[in-house]
Design a protein around this nucleic acid. Structure first.
Lengths: 116, 116
DNA sequence: GGCGAACGATACGGTAGCGTAACGACATTC
DNA sequence: GAATGTCGTTACGCTACCGTATCGTTCGCC
């Protein structure tokens, strides 16, 4: 099941999905926040602030702030690591999973339309 | 040349591309700015502030501000419409075209790796 | 010519992001 | 048990974005 996109199709897909995301989503996430969210939900846990910062090439406060915002929106949760209480483990939430599920559906639906 | 993505592959693609975009791009565009950029370069001109605002479901100042920022970065230019001097026509730039070209290549390259 | 509408830009107060630097809590090491 | 190191968070000053409201310019129309 290969993904065989031309450059034009690739950008077209990105275009359509991004526009619909802007239109529909009241959340207005940053690219960084979206990257963090995808990282949390698509990469096996555990996730820490330091780990995410290193993975994305940003500073720790960026992650802390993003988790603050996304926490208020119910997209992720924080939890102290009881084994090493210096660490904070980032947990997934139902709402976050739903958000990504909708995003996945949007991409697929758009891809079908774009290339049909 | 169909795009036959599973939900998992779709999100995986989005994930990898978004993360690399965050890692590599010092510009740190907003989702809205990215949507505007894609709209300008993938939809046939002419583009106006009002048109883009309507298309994306945002207010006019959002477009004005985004064009300010993107103008400083060389990603787009503004030009008065001499036929109707109330209008401003948004023009593409070489740098903007290069940016999108790189994005397209990134998506394709990622898609190949992701699904191989 | 004057009035109203349309367009883009600007002003305003507020919020949220940024990077750098420092901080408190905790673990580790000697 | 005191020093050192490692976490995540907070503080600071700053910049950029937000939405609402208003402004100046320009067009169209009577």
């Amino acid at each position: 099941m290969p993904v065989d996109l031309t450059p034009s199709q690739a950008l077209g897909l990105w275009h359509a999905v991004t526009v619909r995301q802007v239109q529909d989503d009241g959340r207005d996430l940053t690219l960084r926040q979206l990257a963090i969210l995808l990282e949390i939900y698509l990469v096996p846990p555990p996730h820490t602030v330091r780990g995410l910062a290193a993975r994305l090439g940003v500073t720790k406060p960026v992650i802390t702030r993003a988790l603050d915002t996304m926490g208020e929106q119910g997209l992720a949760t924080r939890q102290r690591d009881e084994r090493d209480r210096r660490n904070v483990v980032i947990k997934r939430t139902v709402e976050g999973a739903l958000f990504l599920e909708r995003l996945g559906d949007l991409i697929i639906a758009t891809g079908r339309v774009q290339t049909s």
